[in-house]
Amino acid sequence: HNLTITQGKLFFHYNPKLCLSEIHKMEEVSGTKGRQERNDIALKTNGDQASCENELLKFSYIRTSFDKILLRWEPYWPPDFRDLLGFMLFYKEAPYQNVTEFDGQDACGSNSWTVVDIDPPLRSNDPKSQNHPGWLMRGLKPWTQYAIFVKTLVTFSDERRTYGAKSDIIYVQTDATNPSVPLDPISVSNSSSQIILKWKPPSDPNGNITHYLVFWERQAEDSELFELDYCLKGLKLPSRTWSPPFESEDSQKHNQSEYEDSAGECCSCPKTDSQILKELEESSFRKTFEDYLHNVVFVPRKTSSGTGAEDPRPSRKRRSLGDVGNVTVAVPTVAAFPNTSSTSVPTSPEEHRPFEKVVNKESLVISGLRHFTGYRIELQACNQDTPEERCSVAAYVSARTMPEAKADDIVGPVTHEIFENNVVHLMWQEPKEPNGLIVLYEVSYRRYGDEELHLCVSRKHFALERGCRLRGLSPGNYSVRIRATSLAGNGSWTEPTYFYVTDYLDVPSNIA
C-alpha cells in the first residue's frame, strides 16, 4: 500500500525493539523526510534493546553428524571492536523451508527459537588472519532439518551509529543413524509349514526405512522333555500350542467401542483428552525405555581390526524358502538304536541362519518350516543398504507352526516275539517326523474274553527296548493296539495285532 503524509511529521519514542533503520525507511515511504526535528525521533529510546544489523554474515563451514552440527561463519568486528559482546545463534526444527525470524513471537518477546549466546573469538592483530567464530550444536535429532541463523550482539553506541551483522536463515539436516526397533511384532501360524509375521514401523526411523531383515531359527525343545518319565503317576503330560491366527481386521481397528449394538453396526467412541494424553505418555515412556535398553543392555560386537582377528559373527547367506525346513542338525536320541526319531534339535552355532529381506511392506510369510516346531524370529529395521547396512537392534518374537495331521501315527506293522515265561516283546517304529517329539506310547492289549488293559511306555523305555515287553501273560489269544502321544496330543491307534500265548508248562520236552 502507498502511504503519503502531505502535512505533519513523524514522532517515535520509547520503541526499544524498533531499529532506527526501520524508522528511516518509514520517513522515505511516507514522504516526511526532512520535516522531523532532532528530538522527534529519539536516538536513545528507539532500538536500544534490539540488534540492528546492516551487514550480512556468511557461514564459512558446515559439518553434520547424526546428532551434531558444527558451524563456522566469517569474522565480524565493528569499528570499535570492544562493542562486540558476542553472537546469538538461533535454531529450531523446520520440516519445511518457510521459516521466518519472527515465527511464534508474542507480545512478551518470546519466540519459538532456541538461542545460544556465543563469546567472540580472540581478536588477531592481523586483519587478514582473524579467527572464524563458530559453535557445535549438540543433542539434535537424527535425520531432522533445522533452520539456523546467527547475528551479532553489540553494545549501545553513544554516537548512535547503527552497526551489526546478521546471516540469512539456512537449512541444515542432520545425518541418518540406526533406527529404533520395529514396533509390535506379531507372529502367527496359518499352516503346519508357515508363519505369518506382521509389525509396525519404528517410532524413530532416523532416516528413510529402506528394508527390513527377518531372521528365523528353529528352537530346540526343553531338555526336561527328553529326561522326564511322563508315565509316572502324578506327572502331567506336557503340551505345546501353536500360535493362533490373526483376529479379523475389524476387531483390530483402534479407537473402536468394545460393545456392539445388537441391531447392527455401531460407531466408534472418540477417545477423551485424558485417554489420548495417557497414550502419549505411555508411548514416550516406551521410547525412553527402549533407548535405555539399547544403550545399557546391548553391547556392540567388536569388529575385526587390522591384526587379522576374525569377526566372530557368522556370515549372512541367503537361502531359498524351500530350504528352511531342514535348518537344524538332527541327532538321534540314543545312538545305539537307529530307529528312534531325530527330534532332539541342538543347533550348531556355526550354522548360517536363513533370512529374508523385506522391502516396502511390514509383513512376511515364512514358508518351508517344520510342522509343530518353535521358531525364534528376529526382526531388524534398516535405513541404508549400501555401502553397508545400517540397521536397528533386533526385536524378537516366537511362534510355533501348526501340527501336521497323521504325523504322530505309527507307520509300519507292530511285530512281536514270544519268549519263555510268557513274555512277549512288542516292537514298532517311532514316527519319523512327529509333531514336536514323542513323549510316550500307549499300549492297549486284551486277552479274548477279558477286559482291555493299558500300559504306558516312556520315551526312554522305548529307546532301550525298541518297544516294550509284556510279562506274566496268561495263555490265550491276544490283540494289541499302540498309539503315540506327542507334544500336540495323541496320534491314531494302530491296526490290531494278534498273537497267541501258550502255557509254557505244557511245552513238550526233548528229553527222552
Rank of each mutant, 00 (worst) to 15 (best):
N206Y: 03
N206K: 05
N206G: 08
G207W: 01
I209T: 03
I209S: 12
H211L: 10
H211D: 01
H211E: 15
V214R: 00
V214L: 12
F215Q: 06
W216K: 06
W216M: 09
R218K: 15
R218L: 11
E221G: 12
S223P: 13
S223T: 09
F226H: 05
E227I: 08
E227P: 10
Y230L: 14
C231H: 01
C231K: 01
C231L: 01
L232P: 14
G234Q: 07
G234M: 13
L235C: 11
R240K: 11
R240S: 12
T241E: 04
W242H: 15
S243C: 06
P245K: 05
P245Y: 14
E247F: 12
E247R: 13
E247V: 13
E247G: 06
E249M: 04
D250N: 14
S251E: 13
S251D: 13
Q252A: 11
Q256K: 07
S257F: 13
S257Y: 11
E258M: 03
Y259Q: 05
Y259K: 09
E260K: 02
D261M: 04
A263E: 05
A263T: 09
C266K: 08
C266G: 11
C266P: 11
S268F: 05
C269P: 07
T272L: 09
D273M: 07
Q275A: 10
I276C: 06
L277S: 11
E279F: 03
E281C: 04
E281K: 09
S283L: 07
S284P: 05
R286A: 14
T288R: 08
F289S: 06
E290G: 15
D291M: 10
D291T: 04
Y292I: 07
Y292Q: 01
V296H: 11
V296P: 06
F298H: 08
F298W: 04
F298T: 06
V299S: 12
T303R: 08
T303K: 06
S305D: 15
G306P: 09
G306M: 14
T307F: 08
G308P: 15
P312K: 06
P314Y: 12
D323P: 05
D323W: 12
V324S: 08
N326I: 08
V327T: 08
V331K: 04
V331D: 04
P332N: 08
T333Q: 03
F337G: 12
F337M: 12
P338S: 09
N339C: 07
T340R: 06
S342V: 14
S342I: 05
S342D: 04
T343S: 07
T343F: 13
S344C: 09
P349Q: 05
H352I: 04
R353L: 05
R353I: 14
R353H: 06
R353P: 14
F355G: 09
K357L: 13
K357F: 13
N360M: 09
K361R: 05
E362V: 12
I366A: 03
I366H: 02
S367I: 09
S367L: 12
S367R: 08
G368S: 11
G368D: 04
L369I: 02
L369A: 14
L369Y: 00
H371D: 15
T373Q: 09
T373L: 10
G374P: 10
E378P: 01
Q380E: 02
Q384V: 13
D385G: 12
P387A: 11
E388L: 12
E389F: 14
E389K: 12
R390Q: 11
A394G: 08
A395H: 12
Y396A: 06
Y396G: 12
V397T: 03
S398G: 05
A399E: 10
A399D: 15
M402I: 14
M402A: 07
K406W: 09
K406T: 06
A407F: 13
A407V: 07
D409R: 08
I410V: 11
I410R: 02
G412E: 03
H416E: 04
E417R: 09
E417F: 11
E420N: 15
N421R: 14
N421F: 12
N421Y: 06
N422R: 06
V423M: 12
V423I: 06
H425F: 08
H425G: 08
M427T: 15
K432S: 13
E433Y: 12
P434L: 01
N435F: 00
G436V: 07
L437C: 10
I438N: 06
V439F: 06
V439D: 05
L440V: 05
Y441M: 01
E442W: 14
E442Q: 05
V443Q: 00
S444T: 14
R446W: 03
R446P: 00
Y448C: 13
G449P: 08
L453G: 08
H454W: 03
L455T: 10
C456G: 01
V457A: 04
V457T: 13
S458K: 13
S458I: 03
S458N: 05
K460E: 10
K460Q: 09
H461R: 09
F462Y: 09
R466D: 09
G467R: 11
R469A: 07
L470I: 10
R471N: 12
R471Q: 08
P475F: 05
G476N: 01
N477D: 11
N477F: 03
Y478K: 01
S479E: 11
V480I: 14
R481N: 08
I482T: 01
A484P: 06
T485L: 14
S486T: 11
L487W: 09
L487N: 13
L487T: 05
A488Y: 10
A488N: 15
N490R: 14
N490A: 06
G491H: 02
W493E: 01
T494Q: 02
E495K: 11
E495F: 08
P496F: 14
P496M: 03
T497N: 08
F499L: 14
F499M: 14
F499G: 00
F499K: 02
T502R: 10
T502V: 12
D503N: 08
Y504M: 03
L505D: 03
D506C: 06
D506R: 07
